[in-house]
């Protein structure tokens, strides 16, 4: 609460003269807003289910959809596709328990190898480094990724003219 108030004050101080700070159309009906929010999400899920022929609540394919669904081991998927909150490593356990088929299963007959080509893959080292993250107790938070993890910082000598600049 104290922190909240402090943040509040800090923000308020930076808000100029404060004329922009105003309520335009009177009080918001919170209960109604919550109802509308839930309805809207529900509708989104229904639309998506129809569109993809998949029940996203029960995690099951629907009958008569346009797509043929096939289970894939969670462990094969890049970390990007796992549900996880910042600092939460619980997805690792979920992944292990919900894996449907084994990793590296051969594509089914009739399915071209290109069928999976639109699934982006991270380089192997990322997957392994994330999935082999050791004991949770020692690392409550995932390390902040730096841009230098992916690119090497390059030095440029100041006097060198830019190639592509004006």
């Amino acid at each position: 609460m104290c922190i909240h108030m402090a943040v509040h004050r800090q923000i308020l101080e930076s808000l100029g003269n404060g004329t922009a700070c105003r309520n335009l159309f009177g009080p918001v009906d919170r209960e109604q807003l919550q109802v509308e929010y839930k309805d809207a999400l529900q509708k989104d899920i229904e639309d998506a289910s129809r569109r993809w022929g998949f029940d996203f609540v029960l995690e099951k394919p629907l009958e008569g959809g346009d797509f043929q669904w096939e289970g894939v081991s969670g462990a094969c998927m890049p970390a990007l596709y796992h549900a996880c909150a910042v600092g939460d490593m619980s997805w690792q356990r979920e992944v292990e328990s919900t894996a449907v088929t084994t990793c590296g299963a051969e594509p089914r007959l009739g399915q071209s190898a290109g069928g999976k080509e639109n699934v982006p893959r991270s380089p192997e080292r990322h997957i392994s480094s994330l999935e082999k993250t050791p004991e949770k107790t020692h690392m409550p938070k995932r390390k902040q990724t730096n841009i230098t993890d992916f690119y090497q910082a390059k030095r440029r000598i100041v006097a060198t003219p830019r190639k592509s600049g004006q």
């Binding site: 923000i11 922009a20 105003r22 309520n23 929010y37």
Partner: peptide
Amino acid sequence: LTAEKLCIYTDNSIRPHELLEWELVVLGK
């Protein structure tokens, strides 16, 4: 801009968690 800042600009008539919930609705639409 942060959610907190935007809520203050509405004279606190909305709350940050409502802003985040509706963010998802708007994104969907």
